[in-house]
Simulated assay, not measured.
Amino acid sequence: MIVVGLTGWGDHPSLYSGVTPSKDKLFDYTGHFLTVEVDTSFYAIPAKEHVRKWCEDTPENFRFVVKAYQGMTGHLRGEIPFESKNDMFNAFIECANEFKRYGKLAMVLAQFPPWFDCQGKNVQYLLYIRQQLKDFEVAIEFRNQTWYAENVVQQTIDFLREHQFIHTICDEPQAGVGSVPFYPVVTANKALIRLHGRNIHGWRNTGNAENWRKVRFLYDYNKEELQQLGDSMKKLEPEVNELFVLFNNNSGNHAAKNAKELQGMLNINDVGLAPKQLNMFEGEL
């Protein structure tokens, strides 16, 4: 089964009915898709009361891909805002367990930075992640090409498979060592594909922090590109119980449009979506 969604639910204007308050955007989102990536958890671990509300406001078969906090994956500059590393992991585990308690946790996503390369100390850290998150299905996303070097890639895949990590398959610009190839191989009974777009200029951009993300993920997949990606997904689908696909190319609000186009190409008709709110200015007789 292929489940398509987006990264985050708060910034997709084409999905909302009229002027939708922030608190209602998740409900509107669930009228279109049955999964979403919680990207806010990368910046701060959500409080349990927020998680409970998200779970209670979504359909029974809706599920969240929860992104690991940045201090857990080496992105955070400076000191972590916790007494210890164990406290940080325990806080995240409490949050993830709340999703799990509702039966709405698809997986935890641990996305590592471009400087997390293939070397012994980083392999050991992956084992530490596995130990800390032993009760969770964890997807690993690399952003460094050395994990996919010709003489290493099979060891990378074997390692992920041995330790029951989900291999995150990425579509992104090929911009040197700080990017990874599209490598459609699965290592667990679930798979995750994240689609970042192919804006090679934006991927390399080192401009100011305010505009960096907007430029990096500014991309609109064309039909041929989506068809090629869809063909790869159909080949992978029989190998897993569930294949989650997340569009992250939303700088120009293209993610929702591309996700809908892909669903149409793959004949995906999700069952159990929330009812769409009627816009009073549409469909007037």
Rank of each mutant, 00 (worst) to 15 (best):
I193G: 02
M233T: 01
I166N: 05
E56V: 01
T20D: 07
T146N: 00
V177G: 00
F82A: 09
G10Q: 10
V177Q: 13
N144W: 04
G176P: 05
V38N: 13
G230Y: 07
K48V: 15
H12A: 13
Y148C: 02
H196C: 03
N122M: 02
A255S: 14
P184D: 06
V66R: 00
A256F: 05
Y29D: 06
G272I: 03
A47N: 12
E141Y: 05
F217Y: 15
G5Y: 07
F64M: 00
P59V: 11
E56G: 04
N97L: 13
V185M: 11
I93H: 08
I200Q: 12
W115T: 14
F247D: 05
A255K: 07
N90M: 12
W9E: 10
S41K: 01
T156V: 07
R198V: 03
D24I: 02
A255I: 10
M280D: 14
F182M: 10
D135M: 02
F247C: 03
V271L: 10
L285Y: 13
F112Y: 15
A191Y: 03
A259Q: 06
L226D: 07
N211R: 11
K104T: 00
I140Q: 01
Q277A: 15
G197N: 08
K234V: 12
D158R: 10
K190G: 03
C95V: 03
E284R: 15
V245N: 04
M1P: 07
P181G: 03
D231M: 11
H50M: 15
K257F: 15
P181K: 04
H163F: 15
D171S: 14
G71E: 08
N267W: 04
V153I: 14
V177F: 08
Q124L: 14
N144G: 10
H167E: 03
P21H: 11
E237R: 05
C118T: 00
G207L: 09
V108P: 00
N279Q: 13
H201R: 15
D158V: 01
A47I: 04
E60I: 12
P21Q: 10
A47P: 05
V177R: 11
E137I: 13
H12D: 06
G10T: 15
G176W: 06
